[in-house]
Every structure is written in structure tokens, then in C-alpha cells.
Design a protein around this nucleic acid. Structure first.
Lengths: 141, 141
DNA sequence: GAAGATTGAGCGCTCAATCTTG
DNA sequence: CAAGATTGAGCGCTCAATCTTC
């Protein structure tokens, strides 16, 4: 007998992990959808709120660890949603900064609360297990 | 003090899970990329090999638990790769079946071996932890 | 009308190429 | 030439609408 000792439906831990993460992701997206947000959009708004000042699109890309063209398109959608405004940087005419709107701030707050609720629910689901142990295991990957 | 007792960098378990899954996913995609495959493509090929007969596109969608239009586009790419052929079903002229090619069979075999290698490596990483415990915890989500 | 497949539009992500400004 | 932003093409996924066949 190898890794499985037959207590469950005998699927590899790898896919169990992937499926679990997908379920959590789906819960998050569903919760944010009620506020007209996605996790990707919320992350941009969080970056802007956290910075406490407008950020250039390159700065946003760097903080989100993604590629610049991704941010360009993300900003198109956020601007269409009225959550962010593009503004030319007078200091460097190559640069464009993203300014969060009042609507953007409100949605960030609502979205963050919704996200925290999901996190709390996930944490609670795992509370009956040894969370520290699971945490270490997942980090070891 | 709430859920964290300060043994690590104090990030929520939810994101630890999401990040861990992303890392595993990235490893899988990188391994499959060496064989000109993605996990999505491999899953289609696995379905066809497993069925031991051509499957209608709707059947594939059903087995992959995805939407039909997704399969339509997936087949476009797999056909362009020469791994699958579309074929009209003489019995039902609405239906189109996907036939795996010899190339498709070879790539499925190579891809499956590569995938298993990653799974083994993930399992090994988790071996020093109580895998049964982690398994139960992840399934509880 | 319902089922099978496709198309068009959109999200979120990548890369390579381009254009402007420094 | 570097850096900032954008565009175009592509992957993988969704949904709504369409077209053919049953």
C-alpha cells in the first residue's frame, strides 16, 4: 500500500488541494459579485486605498505582481465602473496615475468586509483541524 | 488574541491555501508545457482516452463539468495541434464527435507521466506532515 | 420546442510589438 | 537606449444569442 490508506475516495492530495482552493475562490467571487466586484478588481482598489495616494499604472502592476498590460485593461474596466480615474502625471508625461473615486472607496470597504466574512467562514471550517499544522504543510509547497 | 498565535508571517489560512494551490498549478502547467500541453488540454485528452471511443462535444463538456462553448473552442486548439479530429456523427447530424489521433494518444501518455511526477513531488513535500489530516481538512471545505 | 454546436462579447491573465517620452 | 502605457493576439473560462437538426 502506498500513500492512501483508504479512508476516503482515494484521490490524490494534489487535486484535493486544487479543488479546495477552487471552492474557496468561487465563494470569494460569489460574495464579491454581490457588491459588483471581483477579487482582481478588489485587489487593485485595496492597493490604491493602502497607498493613500494615486499610483502609476506601473506601480500598481508591481504591487500586484502582474504585467503592465494587465493593469491597463483592468483600469479600463474599473474606470468604466466609475471606481477609478486615470490622470496624467504632470511630473512625467509618460506616466499615468490611477486615482480612486469616492465610489471606489466605498466599494473597497464593502468588498473587503465581504471578503473577510468568507475568510472567517473558511477559518471556521478548518478550526476543528489543527490549523497550525495545515498552515505549515501548505507553506512547505 | 484571535486565530493567529504568531508562529509564522500572520497571513490568513485562506490565502495560504490559495497561494499554495497556485504554486501547484504553476508547477503542473510548467511540466506540461514541456510536452506542448496545458492541464486543460490534457484533461480533454484523458477523457477521450478513458472513454475508449469518440465522444460527442456535449459528452466531453459533461465529463469535464464545463460549458459546451468551452469545448468548442478547446477543440479548435486541439485540432490545430493535430491531437484530435472532429467527425460528423452519421447517427445524429446535430452531433459532432471528437476522435483522438495517434499524436494525441502519445501526448496524453507523456503528459500524464509528467503530471504524475508533479503529483508525486507534491505528495512527497507533504509527506512529513499528517497527510490524512490535511486531506480531511481540505475536503471539509 | 429541445438538444447539439457555434459565435460574439466579456473577464482575467500572459507575451511580443509599438509608440511616446525621458 | 530605458521606461511607461497601450495594442494585438492568444489561452481558458463564462454567458447569451443563433442556427441546424431532432
Amino acid at each position: 500500500m502506498n500513500q492512501s490508506d483508504g479512508h476516503a475516495s482515494d484521490v490524490d492530495l494534489t487535486f484535493t488541494l486544487l479543488v479546495a482552493a477552487q471552492k474557496v475562490q468561487d465563494r470569494i467571487e460569489a460574495a464579491l459579485d454581490e457588491h459588483g466586484l471581483s477579487l482582481a478588481k478588489l485587489n487593485v482598489l485595496k492597493a490604491l486605498v493602502g497607498a493613500e495616494k494615486p499610483l502609476s499604472l506601473s506601480e500598481v502592476a508591481s504591487r500586484l505582481a502582474c504585467v503592465r498590460s494587465n493593469v491597463t485593461q483592468m483600469m479600463d474596466r474599473l474606470e468604466a465602473d466609475g471606481l477609478v480615474r486615470r490622470q496624467h502625471d504632470p511630473a512625467d508625461r509618460r506616466s499615468i496615475v490611477a486615482v480612486i473615486t469616492n465610489d471606489g472607496r466605498e466599494r473597497e470597504a464593502a468588498g473587503s468586509r465581504a471578503l473577510e466574512a468568507v475568510q472567517a467562514s473558511v477559518t471556521e471550517s478548518l478550526a476543528s483541524f489543527d490549523s497550525a499544522h495545515i498552515d505549515q504543510a501548505l507553506r512547505s509547497l
